[in-house]
Amino acid sequence: MIGKLSDQQMQTILQQNMMGRIGCSSHSKIFVVPVCYAYNGKAIIAHSAEGMKINMMRNNPQVCFEVDEVTSLTNWRSVIIWGQYQEILDERERFYSVKFLMSRLLQYTEAEKVHHAQAIVADEDTGHFNSNIRPVVYRITIEEMTGRFEHGDLLI
């Protein structure tokens, strides 16, 4: 059975997950990449080093964001968001956004915590914070959201 997720089900999926895919486009090129995120009930909060994704979103702030939960080919749930990329530049808001993001990421298993903490804030050679890299902290303000699911024999 294929169906549409309710608003509450979409909210739950966004709150329970930490990995999504952001889709952006610029100059006829489309780019989709996985990102760690936190959902605050109003927006997706994330950060990234400078690079293609950030440059594309600066050039065209209209983005798409997807979160999937896949158990099998006939048992999955998916939420898609369309919204606006906005860099968080205010130092206070930036501090609290990163704090919120890190607190959400640290709610997962020890192995996941170690892996994501290293990927996010550590210099691989020394294991210490690399102060030369200042990540871009951003939000995706939600303009539209939709969700679908498929369950073979089960009801959700």
Results as ranks from 00 to 15, higher is better:
Arg104Glu: 04
Asp90Phe: 01
Asn130Gln: 11
Tyr85Lys: 07
Gln118Cys: 10
Leu89Trp: 00
Glu66Phe: 00
Arg77Trp: 00
Trp76Glu: 03
Ile81Pro: 05
Met56Trp: 02
Arg77Gly: 04
Asp68Ser: 11
Gln62Asp: 13
Gln118Trp: 03
Val114Tyr: 06
Arg58Gln: 10
Val70Asp: 04
Arg94Pro: 03
Ser72Ala: 15
Gln84Gly: 00
Val114Ser: 10
Cys64Tyr: 01
Ala111Phe: 04
Asn59Ala: 15
Arg94Gln: 12
Leu105Gln: 06
Ser97Leu: 01
Met57Cys: 12
Val70Arg: 09
Asn60Phe: 01
Asp68Arg: 08
Asn59Gly: 07
Ile81Ser: 05
Gln107Lys: 15
Val63Asn: 04
Phe129Gly: 07
Glu91Asp: 11
Thr109Ser: 15
Leu73Arg: 11
Met56Ile: 06
Ala122Trp: 02
Leu89Pro: 00
His116Val: 13
Leu101Phe: 10
Thr74Cys: 07
Ile88His: 02
Asn132Tyr: 10
Ala122Asn: 08
Thr126Val: 10
Asn132Arg: 14
Asp90Glu: 13
Asp90Trp: 00
Asn75Met: 05
Asn59Ile: 00
Arg58Met: 05
Asn60Gly: 09
Ser78Val: 08
Ala122Phe: 03
Val121Trp: 05
Val79Glu: 05
Lys99Ala: 12
Val98Arg: 06
Val63Ile: 14
Ser72Val: 09
Asp123Met: 06
Leu89Thr: 13
Trp76Gln: 05
Thr71Phe: 10
Leu73Cys: 08
Asn130His: 09
Arg104Gly: 02
Phe129His: 12
Glu110Asp: 13
Val63Thr: 10
Val121Arg: 05
Ser97Pro: 03
Gln86Tyr: 04
